[in-house]
Design a protein around this nucleic acid. Structure first.
Length: 494
RNA sequence: CGGGGUGUAGCGCAGUCCGGUUAGCGCAUCUGCUUUGGGAGCAGAGGGCCGCAGGUUCGAAUCCUGUCACCCCGACCA
């Protein structure tokens, strides 16, 4: 086990400490001087950038364009959609003044009471209100529709308790906001985008997710329907990893956004919004990592292959590095991101441990023996299997290994996830599984808010989703015994 | 906002109960030598308003009062 992590906590010992420690030690992020806010370090940001790029391309492939809307939202905009305010009111940062002045006692600065804003500004916790206030001016006719915009931004939600990547006071995300002429088109858009998220999670993050509808309780404030992708972490807790909302005409009505249809009649516009955040980083870390550190899927790894020389003295070093340079050039030509670590102030063993901590998918080490034999040592991060392979054909081998690792860690996560879905038919069983095993629990529910809330109060478990592919099945609610027509998925969530 | 805890070197900590040499240890840093196929060894060096402000005392990291900050557990939440 990595020395950096050794004196701390193993995954099975205290999962959240293990997670926090890993994030810091692997150089992804750390807590900042500002309470609840996070500094994303270069290595962590490099992963986020890869995610951004892939997602952005997927949005463009589905016809979306990027735009940018203001950070500040006038307070009055907020109160226009009743459910929306209620959902966010308790966690908003509010700007009340626009100027500081020197303190009277000469010590530091104070807020200038004369510089009070007429109307307070809210730092966006999400942008529906400012965007729909803008869309009002953009939309007049059915010919102006649809509008398919996305913005990459930061938002602020003043959370009481925060955790690196999973919940921070400020976080980075993208939010798509679309406007449509018909209900059908908007519903289809919301479904399409949750599909994009599912594809991204599966293909890029190697993260299996369950797609489904949120229950009324868990729905986005102001939505008529919320679609979600739910992932399972290695401690058996669920993580909501992305959402796509069908907003019906709620925001159009709140901001009076209408258009003239082909028949010349005024109609309210239909809307969707959808987003994923830096929380995905948390999902990525928690889904695949082990006690040696991160395990990154090759598609998102900032460094895909690291080359390490093993040597005694200058002479060997120069012989080996020139060989490594050659190999690195070939790997780069094949489109791989490669790093040669020729630092001479740390030994090779230290480097091995360090790149395991950082989750680099493939490590190649070359020493004098290899130079002589025309071989190289190859270690894959996901299994830590070590083999000596010929230098000849190395590029093809490593390229193939990238795909192999990508699919292997997906399969591993999928097998685990599937083994953690348990069907139960009684409340006692439900509580027992929740306590002893965790994971998703598939159970019957009578469909009422009251039942869900009581289960939450008594067990902390919530309905994560009603899966899209749920099969009709007659049964009885585990709590009330009332009739139910299909199962839903419960879990304790982050 | 309730309950608990912690502030001592860049990081992690001991010392505080019971006041008393020059405030100590590990990691990291720097220098030198020896090492180098899984987190090197030895020798030496640098680095501190002991969170901050008062007070008690001949004497305070240690006792008292106040204050600030952070962490953990709850309620809230992508």
């Amino acid at each position: 086990m990595a020395k950096e992590l050794k004196h701390v906590v193993a995954m099975d010992d205290n999962y959240s400490q293990w997670y926090n420690n890993l994030v810091v030690k692997a150089g992804l992020a750390e807590n900042s001087a500002v309470r609840g806010c996070m500094v994303i370090k270069p290595y962590g940001y490099a992963i986020w950038e890869k995610m951004q790029r892939a997602l952005d391309q997927m949005f463009k492939d589905t016809g979306h364009e990027n735009a940018y809307f203001p950070l500040f939202i006038p307070k009055s905009f907020f109160s226009k959609e009743a459910n929306h305010v209620e959902g966010f009111a308790k966690e908003c940062a509010v700007v009340t003044h626009y100027r500081l002045k020197n303190a009277d006692n000469g010590q530091g600065v104070v807020v200038d009471p004369d510089a009070k804003l007429e109307e307070e500004l809210i730092v966006r916790p999400t942008s529906e209100t400012i965007i729909w206030n803008t869309y009002k001016n953009w939309i007049h006719s059915y010919r102006d529709l649809p509008i398919l915009c996305n913005q990459w931004a930061n938002v602020v939600r003043w959370e009481m308790r925060t955790r690196l990547f999973l919940r921070t006071a400020e976080f980075l995300w993208q939010e798509g906001h679309t406007a449509h002429a018909t209900r059908e088109e908007a519903v289809a858009e919301a479904e399409k985008m949750i599909g994009v998220y599912e594809k991204f999670a599966t293909e890029w993050m190697a993260l299996p997710v369950i797609v489904g509808h949120k229950s009324e309780n868990e729905r986005f404030a102001g939505a008529e329907d919320t679609l979600t992708i739910e992932a399972l972490m290695q401690d058996g807790k669920a993580l909501q990893s992305g959402t796509s909302h069908f907003l019906a005409q709620n925001f159009a009505k709140a901001f009076d956004v209408t258009f003239t249809n082909k028949e010349g009649k005024q109609e309210y516009v239909w809307a969707t919004s959808w987003g994923v955040s830096t929380r995905l980083m948390g999902a990525l870390i928690m889904a695949h990592s082990d006690n040696n550190g991160l395990v990154l899927p090759p598609k998102l790894a900032p460094i895909q292959v690291v080359l390490i020389p093993i040597y005694k003295g200058e002479e060997e070093l120069s012989a080996i590095t020139s060989k490594l340079d050659e190999i690195a050039a070939q790997l780069r030509a094949a489109g791989l991101s490669v790093k040669i670590d020729d630092r001479d102030n740390v030994r090779s063993g230290f480097k091995f441990a360090e790149y395991e901590l950082k989750g680099v998918p493939v490590r190649l080490a070359m020493g004098p023996r290899d130079v002589q034999n025309g071989t190289i040592e190859l270690v894959r991060r996901d299994t830590l299997e070590k083999e000596n392979v010929p230098q000849e054909g190395l590029v093809a081998r490593v390229s193939a290994l990238m795909d192999d690792i990508q699919s292997n860690i997906y399969k591993k996560a999928l097998d685990y996830r599937n083994s953690m879905i348990t069907k139960v038919d009684t409340y006692d069983e439900f509580k027992k599984v929740l306590k002893e095993k965790g994971g998703f629990i598939s159970a019957h529910w009578d469909g009422t808010v009251e039942t869900e809330e009581r289960i939450k109060e008594e067990t902390k478990a919530t309905i994560r989703c009603i899966p899209l592919d749920v099969e009709p099945e007659e049964g009885k609610c585990i709590l009330t015994g009332k009739p139910s027509h299909h199962r839903v998925l419960f879990a304790i969530a982050y």
